[in-house]
Amino acid sequence: MSSMMAQQIIDGLAALTLLISFALLAQHRMLSVLHWFAAQGLLLAITAAVVAYSSGEHELYISAIMTLLLKGLLLPWMLWRVIRELHVHREVEPLLNSGVTMVIAVAVTLFSFHVIQPIQVTADLVTHNSMAIATACVLLSMLMMITRKKAITQVIGFLAVENSLFFAAIGATNGMPLVVEIGIAFDVLIAALIFGLFFFQIRDTFDSMEIDTMNASLVHKDDDE
């Protein structure tokens, strides 16, 4: 694979990542959010694999596989179970309406391109374009956390931030093994932490309340957060 070709593919993947960030922001149904999140994990894995192939860094294959397993399959599956058990299929009215959110999102994207562009020019990696997009994705994921009420979407937003950081790491360092490894470790750690909290809360409420009241109370607690 020539470097030109790799560049093309990575640019395409970067564009798709940006698209998924927008899709995550635009969705209201919990399951669609989850699907897009899974797609993002999958895309990350593919990107890591492509970068690994084009740069010859074989450690990246490992992280690609780890990404696929963890972010493409495991995390979505666990979140899916949480959603199923809590019966929160629908996001309640978001804080901002979708039109305003989209306008802000576009503005944020422009801003990050504006900020990153001077840095990009100096970089000569195959992935140098993806830096701006990764930054935009980070900001968009944070926007998603800000504009949503439900805790689960906020968690997904948080994980999406992490995904975008991972993407940035691949883009910026061409897969420096150490950074990637730490990133993934950090990722797992966070995921474990979050799920610990979640299950803790569920178990906590299970002991004391009825199913219906538990739902109501959970929704209530989510709103408080």
Partner: peptide, 26 residues
């Protein structure tokens, strides 16, 4: 429907930005 059309607009606008970013700016 407005949301649908708004999505189309955002997509097209993203396309435009990406055109500048990835295809011309590189």
């Amino acid at each position: 429907v407005p949301q649908y059309l708004g999505t189309a607009f955002v997509l097209a606008f993203l396309g435009l930005i990406l055109h500048y970013m990835l295809e011309v700016g590189a």
